[in-house]
Design a protein around this nucleic acid. Structure first.
Length: 579
DNA sequence: GTCGTGAACGACATATACTATGTAGTATA
């Protein structure tokens, strides 16, 4: 479903990049307009292909010109303006700008004065020491460009890093920083704090008495492959896998302003700063200050800064400039979800890929204060799945365990069914009815076309035993794409059949995505936050599912296992709607 | 480029750090 939208955003991003080159200014109005339009499209939850020019222009920051380009792209597959820019600035030239330290001005100069039109040309110019002739370039520039080129040859293009890779690195880094003498606070900011699916780098804000000590500690860490830059308060390093880490040291009384700034998003910050100026104040990463007289209004906490700007606290998860500032102003920010009270997708050592026992998983869930949980090992249709007898043995154990636990904890015997190529499910209807909880998921045949994928998923939803669909799109962030589904048809079927949709908290999945959840908003569809844990510590991942749901602004009333345990039990007892 | 006001045109433009150079470019949120 995301295909068309991704194509449009890709087109706008390319227009942005080429226009920066064309105008030699990364901040021109045209450039900003393309960026804003891409932003608006990103926040739009409908089907772009179904819209006419007028409909497209109703999207934020999409005007006549962009709407026409979108139609042009969707009908012909090409955009004349883009083609013209591509002809003028071929890919080999764009590649120059991707070199760290090279911007539009440098590219312009290299092309005009040295006829450098590609990385190869640049390599030759460097070898001949011709860069020294250029004003603004010196021996250091030469050395830096040569190193960038060599690194590019070695590692290929730079891509964004999936959150599943970046978050553990960031957590270890923060833990180490907290051990540095004099450090009283260390926190991950940037897109990781906003819980973006992929991140460009890791931003860490540190409070310490002596910044130099922190900088020394950072560059000495084993995770550091090389140092990009080091200043009095900011150091940038790169890991061996090419992930950039920026560490910034601030004073304790500036922490709020620093967190706000380094968390972003950029456009959220720009709007906040504009808002400050309109109120006679100026906001930077150190403080919110009166323009007249320079008196500091707020700096210590984010809450104080938002309050001084006449706003309630806005969760980092929402700071994407997707209407959160307007919602805050109107007092209609999405409410955070309550505590997680159950987990309905997890595996034990009974099936091939689980590593903790049933008892360990139950203990883990109880330790988290849950009221209920379903054990859902794989059915026989999955590689690591097991047959009927093993499940019946497990059921007996679960019943015995439930008897010990009493009413304080509801333990369901569940199963994760595999959705077959044509929507067929494991075992037979009668055997499936024997489970307390059936979830069904797609694990294979991931490249079927849209009609076939939609049909098999909807077929599974129509089964009376299937209470929930697990990781609906089967995507892996930074890995494999989502399966091709007709989102309207799938969501309509979920609503009609009363089949809940899982929000899977495994970091490589985060499935449903924010985009899908927003598409489902307004429909009567229940969501379940799950860990998909294969080992007891992974129960923690349900928290990531919760963050993802909050990021999407999914309503607490639609999430059955966050908030009130009794509400959850009532939902479980009610069974599948219409069955 | 978009947007809002008024039907063609003006407004839109945050704030800083670092680096290599001698004022500007690039990068970051």
């Amino acid at each position: 479903m995301a295909d068309v939208k991704d194509d449009v955003i890709e087109m706008l991003k390319e227009l942005t990049e080429l226009t920066i080159l064309d105008e030699g200014d990364p901040q021109s109005f045209r450039v900003r307009a393309y960026e804003n339009a891409a932003h608006g499209i990103g926040a739009f939850a409908g089907d772009l292909a179904a819209l006419d020019l007028k409909g497209l222009q109703a999207i934020d920051n999409v005007g006549k010109s962009t709407a026409e380009k979108i139609r042009e792209l969707l009908t012909s597959g090409k955009v004349a303006k883009l083609e013209a820019l591509r002809a003028k600035h071929p890919a080999s030239v764009v590649a120059l700008m991707r070199l760290p330290g090279v911007g539009p001005k440098a590219v312009k100069k290299l092309r005009e004065e040295l006829d450098v039109q590609s990385l190869d040309d640049l390599r030759a110019a460097l070898a001949a020491h011709r860069l020294a002739e250029l004003k603004g370039f010196g021996p250091k520039s030469e050395a830096k460009l040569a190193e960038s080129l060599a690194r590019l040859d070695a590692s290929g293009a730079v891509t964004r890093t999936p959150i599943s890779v970046a978050l553990p690195v960031a957590n270890r880094l923060v833990a180490r920083l907290l051990e540095v003498p004099g450090v009283t606070h260390a926190e991950t900011c940037g897109s990781l704090r906003r819980f973006s699916e992929t991140v460009g780098d890791i931003d860490v804000v540190v409070v310490a008495k002596d910044a130099a000590v922190v900088m020394d500690a950072v560059v000495a860490m084993p995770v550091v492959d090389r140092v990009l830059g080091r200043g009095d308060t900011k150091t940038s390093v790169v890991t061996p896998r090419g992930l950039q880490i920026d560490v910034r040291v601030v004073a304790a009384h500036q922490l709020g302003a620093a967190l706000l700034y380094f968390t972003g998003s950029k456009s959220h910050n720009v709007k906040l700063r504009t808002r400050a100026l309109a109120r006679g104040m100026t906001l930077n990463e150190y403080a919110l200050t009166m323009v007249e007289g320079g008196k500091v209004v707020a700096s210590e906490t984010e809450e104080q800064i938002y309050a001084a700007l006449g706003l309630p606290f806005i969760s980092p998860l929402l700071r994407e400039d997707c209407g959160e500032l307007e919602a805050a102003e109107a007092g209609i920010l999405p409410k955070p979800l309550g505590p997680i009270v159950g987990d309905f997708h997890l595996h034990t050592s009974m099936s091939g890929d689980g590593h903790s026992t049933l008892e360990e998983m139950v203990a883990g869930a109880r330790a988290r204060g849950y009221r209920a949980m379903a054990v859902t090992d794989h059915a026989e249709g999955t590689v690591s799945g097991v047959g009927r007898e093993r499940f019946l043995e497990q059921r007996a154990k679960i019943r015995a365990l439930q008897a010990q636990l009493g009413d304080s904890f509801k333990l369901l015997h569940g199963v994760e069914l595999n959705i077959g190529r044509d929507g067929e499910l494991d075992y037979d209807l009668e055997f499936r009815r024997g489970f307390d909880w059936c979830l069904a998921s797609v694990h294979d045949h991931l490249t079927l076309d849209r009609a076939a994928q939609t049909k098999r998923v909807v077929a599974a939803m129509r089964d009376p035993t299937v209470r929930m669909i697990g990781h609906l799109t089967a995507r892996m962030i930074g890995g494999r794409p989502p399966i091709d589904l007709d989102s309207d048809a799938v969501l309509a079927a979920a609503e009609e059949t009363g089949t809940a949709l899982e929000i899977n908290g495994a970091l490589p999945r985060l499935d449903l995505s924010v985009d899908w959840q927003r598409r489902a908003a307004g429909r009567r569809i229940d969501f379940v936050l799950d860990s998909d844990a294969h080992v007891v510590d992974e129960l923690e991942r349900a928290r990531y599912a919760k963050l993802n749901a909050e990021r999407a602004g999914t309503l607490p009333a639609r999430v059955v296992n966050a908030g009130d345990g009794e509400r959850l039990l009532a939902w479980l007892a009610a069974g599948k709607r219409g069955v």
